[in-house]
Computed example of a mutant assay.
Amino acid sequence: MITIQSTEQLTGGCISGDFWDLDELVNAIYKITGDENKYYDYQGARLRILHVCYKLRQAAKGEHRLEFVSNGLTKNVLTQHEYIFPSKNAYFATEIIWPELLFTAIALNDFIRLHKEHVDDSDWNIEVAIIRKFQAVVADCLKQEMDDEQYLVFLRMLHTKIPLTFRYATQYIDVLNLEYLYLDKEERQIQLAAFALRIMLENEDYMALKSQLMEAAIMTKKALHDIEINIRYPEEIWW
């Protein structure tokens, strides 16, 4: 089962699960987001989500963190069945910076809507169910870090049917990630809800950045999501 817990410094959420949990989630996301020729106006969001999927695939190969979780096998059960088996299973884990993780959960809403409109509107779609569970786990983790009022505001906005990542300038998530990283733990606790809302609301900072990116896109004849901004992450992140 996929679990998410805030990291010690509230830098991000640590996603963990066994190999099959992570593999199931990644495959569901790939199915829902479609190939690169689909939903062109959402390509920036799609590529951002797939970057998180890449980290999950790396984690499933043991390239990030390993955790050992009790599997419920007691000494009595093992004796009864005459098995020699470890009492813990290996879980693979990776950390995702909070603004990045929030954007991923929010953007997946748009792709679920698009998938239902253009591919399969069944209430029993297994990939949608897998992603909804992932979103629920993100929300549940977030609930531990917000007061009730902030959390309800976030949920109401998350449930909107208005597309939130249509032609979204995803470079803004890098800006938020970096800004968030330079806060201390106490400031992150206070401002996490505000960061969630800034992802969903097109404020002045976002619109100014998008305007600059659109000008660059016109000049270079590149897609909006292909324009790079001059930003550098710390070499080491204190989770």
Rank of each mutant, 00 (worst) to 15 (best):
R46E: 06
C141F: 12
S87Y: 14
E100P: 01
I130H: 07
I131N: 04
I162C: 07
I96S: 10
V69N: 13
Y151E: 02
A45C: 09
H81C: 05
M146N: 12
I96F: 09
F85I: 11
E63C: 03
A60F: 03
L108C: 09
N109F: 00
T160L: 08
A129Q: 10
I130L: 01
I130W: 01
D147I: 04
L47C: 12
H118M: 08
I112Q: 08
W124K: 09
Q135D: 09
I131Q: 03
A59Q: 07
E127G: 01
P86E: 11
L114C: 06
F68T: 02
I106W: 03
S87V: 14
R48Y: 13
L66V: 12
H118R: 05
Q58G: 15
R113P: 00
I131C: 04
H51F: 13
K116V: 01
S122Q: 01
K133C: 12
V137E: 15
A107Q: 04
M146H: 10
V153G: 01
D148L: 06
L78D: 00
W98T: 15
K133V: 10
E100V: 06
V52P: 00
F103S: 10
D123F: 08
V77M: 11
L66D: 13
R113W: 02
P86L: 05
A93V: 05
W98M: 12
Y91I: 03
A139F: 12
Q43W: 04
E67H: 10
A60P: 03
D140K: 13
I130C: 07
L78E: 05
D148N: 09
I106A: 06
D120I: 09
V69S: 04
F134H: 06
A90W: 00
D110H: 04
A139R: 12
K143E: 13
F92S: 06
Y42K: 01
N76C: 00
E63A: 11
N109Q: 09
V137M: 10
T94V: 15
I112T: 06
Y40L: 15
A90V: 15
E95Q: 12
M146C: 15
V128A: 02
C141W: 15
L73R: 14
Q80R: 08
A129M: 11
I162F: 10
D140G: 10
R46A: 03
K116S: 09
